[in-house]
Write a protein that binds this DNA or RNA. Structure first.
Length: 856
RNA sequence: GCCGCGGUGGCGGAAUUGGUAGACGCGCGAGACUUAAAAUCUCGUGAUAGUAAUGUCAUGUGGGUUCGAUUCCCACCCGCGGCACCA
């Protein structure tokens, strides 16, 4: 029995005292001396330091990267393994609202807790380059980045609809709105028009797609990013508008469609309530109806829309557009099933071949008593069912595939061929133009919140924005702020902030003030009260790490290019879309600004799965199924916790916690300690020892192969097999490994159970010499394996007859290549005679070293 | 509805350029040591028939390709995640 708690605390102190993994600023590693070009950057997703401290999910992903870091260091690489905190954000602010404790205080204490816990589980982070986004020396550069974006026109202001929580009295990000409700208080979210700051991520939309080809990421992640960007090719068709009341300028309307092939069946047009023509084109009696509808539509919440389901509604504008293909008049309707933000905000209705169009037409036709507004349903495609009859039911609406009919020169073509042909035709006629449409929108970065990076902008007395001069950065977050939510940005309550702005204006804009005749004390100037979305902070932290204390630049090119792109990024699946997209956008922007030469920041990226509660459900306080890492460490030690989490299953998949199974790992580590430290025996040469040595070399090989593939569970399983054999040989034959081989095994174990490994290494070292200077296992080289020693003498080859295994053939490993000899050997095997005697062997197959297959 | 991921013993999981399905761990059963317990160790453990040798069945379901399929193809079923009135 070894006291893992005592042992682990001892080694934690020794590592700390020796600054074992600490690197100098900028991540120079003097400890391992790897060659240039052997630089490896391992990145753990920026964590928010929550007051709850570390949970078992953190332990999993941090341990996985730590194993890689320790492994590569032992392989002689320069490893950069930094740590930092995504310290701005809503939770700290909300906590402050509840308790009155300033966010800067709670953040500092939360970080302290995390730091202590992380050190306790032995993560070999480089603490010399630790950063926090709430530190002025960090957000100075977040603000600088804003200025760069601004100067290139990529940061801009625009009016737009935002999510508003009437209970929290604040704007929320899209991701904080869950099914139309505020994620914190379950209040219905309203839409509000506000002037906000945006980053123009859409400038890079095509590159954000094509760049995915360069990176080694899970397919699922790439698919989700593509989904989010939502690139679609189609055509904008422009129709002439024939008005009952001809409005000024509204004599054309442009609709986006991906299915122009069905345009011979187009019988109406629908525009979104937000469409600019919606308010312009109607007049008279119709006008009031339109306004009534627009008013109702604008009041609808997300929830209303959801509850309505797909029920259609709409109002007629009194206008008609002309379908050039058929010369038919198409009534123009307004309906909220058409979205203002997608395509052109106008849709051409083909009720025969689009379910939504059909539902809308059906709704209108049932409502229409006079027949004046009847919408015609025309079939232009015949699907696989061969149905050519009139379309009267939703079930008949054919969308996916088929052949064209009732479509003049398209008749008989497949819909795909017809799509190309009609596009060419329309472009030729000048009726339409091929376009690409995207789902991705520009990134709204303003937040009416306190605990974030202030947007470095001031407004002059006329309300014009002026970016804060670079020399005035960091444009500090004021501290004299009342952060109770009032519906206004908390920074408005700061006296200091207002005064600072006036003083700044007087200093910087003296000429302008004089010229305009404004108040010379700076009266009338005000700062931007909004702060930035925390995703802005976390979109470039991986660059700052490389030069974390540089006061003159966000990071030197030399330092960035030394370490980036990141060799492995470990990140939770919850940030697949936004954070990764934003980081890639920043990277491409800074590349264009000439700061470095690569385009993708994360060459390889993997997700850790979720660790579920013992009940197979997501851990949560309310379910009472949360496992605390502290308890496990107290009972079994950090090594056990590490190895258990790595052994649970594949890193990427979700896995339930099994408290009973933890014991298995604990016993395994105790067994290793016993074999090395407690049991005495002689090193005797003999048969068993050869077998054990072979297994050792196979273990080194297996673990060396598995670590870079992140297959830690199978690596551990093989180490267990080795230890079981070792124990067996020890008990039955009183034989053990040589000192050298013991050290080799400890080396293999070291990345997984670093405390125990160093302890065992010390025990062995002390037996050999009385040296007192620390020189631990983590400073040694990764054990080498010998291909020769790892090779099995005998190989078992199964023999199949008609596809079933009937016997085994044991062959000396150097004879597996001799097919003729193998087949000769088979004939002598008693157990397969009964299957082949009296039969003609029709086929003989031998796959070298793997299988013999006979067909009789 | 669309996109993606997955389905293997009582449980977590191993095994894929197609080659002995169930490594390793948990749990369970039997035994050794012990006055006893704990700890430790040994053996067994997919189902089914049989005293046994051995046979049959078995990787969500149904087909197919192959000497051979958890792995490849086709059609379905179920679970999870994301998006969704996106034209």
């Amino acid at each position: 029995m070894y006291d893992q708690k005592k042992v682990e605390e001892k080694w934690q102190q020794i590592w700390e005292a020796n600054q074992l993994f600490q690197q100098s600023e900028g991540g120079d590693n003097h400890k391992n001396g790897g060659a240039v070009g052997d630089n490896i950057y391992l990145l753990f997703a920026f964590a928010y330091p929550s007051g709850n401290g570390l949970h078992v999910g953190h332990v999993e992903s941090k341990t996985a990267l730590d194993i890689l870091a320790r492994y590569y260091r032992m392989k002689g690489k320069n490893v950069f393994f930094p740590v930092g905190w995504d310290a701005f954000g809503l939770p700290a602010e909300n906590y402050a609202i509840e308790t009155g404790v300033h966010p800067s205080k709670t953040t500092v204490s939360a970080i302290d807790t995390f730091r202590r816990q992380i050190k306790r589980i032995g993560i070999s982070y480089d603490w010399a380059n630790e950063i926090a986004t709430s530190h002025p020396e960090y957000y100075k550069w977040t603000q600088w980045l804003f200025l760069q974006m601004y100067s290139k026109g990529l940061a801009y202001q625009k009016d737009g609809k935002v999510n508003w929580c009437p209970s929290c009295q604040t704007v929320l990000a899209n991701e904080q709105v869950v099914e139309g409700l505020c994620e914190r208080c379950d209040t219905q979210i309203e839409q509000k028009d506000m002037r906000q700051w945006y980053y123009q991520i859409t400038k890079y939309q095509d590159e954000l797609i094509s760049g995915l080809d360069e990176v080694n990421w899970p397919n699922a992640t790439k698919a989700q990013q593509l989904n989010w960007i939502g690139k679609k090719t189609g055509i904008n068709i422009t129709y002439k508008v024939e008005g009952v009341n001809k409005p000024g300028g509204a004599d054309e309307i442009t609709c986006f469609t991906t299915r122009p092939d069905t345009n011979f069946g187009a019988t109406f047009i629908v525009i979104a309530p937000e469409h600019e023509l919606a308010t312009k084109i109607a007049s008279g009696e119709i006008r009031s109806k339109v306004f009534d509808y627009l008013d109702k539509a604008s009041k609808k919440t997300e929830l209303d829309r959801q509850q309505e389901g797909k029920k259609k509604s709409g109002v007629f504008t009194g206008l008609y557009a002309i379908n050039d293909l058929t010369a038919k008049k198409m009534p123009i309707w307004i309906s909220d099933f058409v979205l203002g933000g997608f395509g052109t905000g106008a849709v051409v209705g083909v009720p025969g071949h689009d379910v939504r169009d059909f539902e809308f037409a059906d709704y209108i036709n049932k409502l229409d008593k006079t027949g004046d507004q009847r919408i015609e349903v025309i079939r232009v495609v015949v699907g696989q069912d061969g149905d050519e009859s009139e379309i009267t039911k939703v079930a008949q609406v054919q969308e996916e595939q088929g052949l064209m009919i009732n479509s003049d020169f398209l008749n008989g073509m497949s819909i795909h061929d017809a799509t190309k042909k009609i596009m060419d035709y329309m472009e030729e006629k000048g009726w339409g133009k091929r376009v690409t449409s995207y789902r991705l929108r520009d990134w709204l970065i303003s937040r009416q919140r306190y605990w974030g990076t202030p947007i470095p902008v001031v407004y002059d007395p006329e309300g014009n924005p002026h970016p804060v001069e670079q020399s005035y950065l960091p444009w500090k977050l004021p501290t004299d702020v009342d952060f109770k939510p009032t519906g206004e940005s908390p920074l408005k309550s700061s006296q200091e902030f207002a005064e600072r702005t006036r003083k700044y204006a007087v200093e910087v804009y003296a000429d302008l003030i004089t010229k305009k005749g404004w108040d010379v004390s700076g009266e009338g100037w005000r700062p931007e009260f909004d702060t930035m979305d925390t995703f802005v902070d976390s979109s470039w932290y991986f660059l700052r790490y490389t030069d974390s204390r540089n006061p003159d630049v966000f990071a030197k090119t030399e330092q960035i290019e030394k370490w980036l792109p990141v060799d492995l990024y470990m990140i939770g699946p919850e940030h697949i879309v936004l954070h990764l997209l934003y980081s890639r956008f920043f990277t491409k922007f800074l590349r264009d600004e000439g700061y470095f030469n690569f385009s993708e920041p994360f060459v390889k990226m993997r997700h850790q799965g979720m660790i579920l509660g013992p009940d197979n459900k997501k851990m949560s306080k309310s379910k009472g199924n949360v496992i605390s890492p502290d308890e496990i460490i107290e009972k079994f030690g950090a090594d056990t916790l590490r190895v258990y989490e790595m052994f649970m299953g594949p890193l990427e998949s979700d896995k339930p916690w099994d408290t009973r199974a933890v014991v298995g790992i604990y016993k395994f580590l105790q067994k290793v300690h016993r074999l090395v430290a407690e049991l005495e025996s002689e090193d005797v040469l003999g048969e068993a020892k050869v077998e054990l040595q072979r297994k050792l070399h196979q273990t080194i090989k297996k673990v060396s192969d598995d670590i870079p593939k992140l297959k830690f569970n199978t690596a551990i399983a093989f180490m267990m097999e080795f230890v079981n054999l070792w124990q067996n040989v020890m008990i039955k034959e009183n034989k053990t490994l040589s000192i050298k081989d013991k050290i080799a095994f400890i080396g293999v174990l070291a990345p997984f159970a670093p405390f125990l490994a160093d302890e065992l290494f010390e025990i062995i070292s002390k037996k050999m010499s009385s040296e007192t200077i620390y020189s631990g296992i983590h400073q040694t080289s990764w054990p080498a394996f010998s291909q020769e020693l790892a090779k099995d003498d005998l190989i078992n080859i199964p023999i199949q007859i008609n596809g079933k295994v009937r016997a085994q053939l044991e062959v000396e490993s150097d004879k597996v290549g001799d097919e003729k000899a193998i087949f000769n050997m088979i004939e002598g095997i008693e157990s397969i005679k009964k299957y082949i005697d009296g039969h003609e062997i029709k086929k003989k197959i031998y796959i070298k070293g793997k299988i013999i297959s006979l067909v009789v």
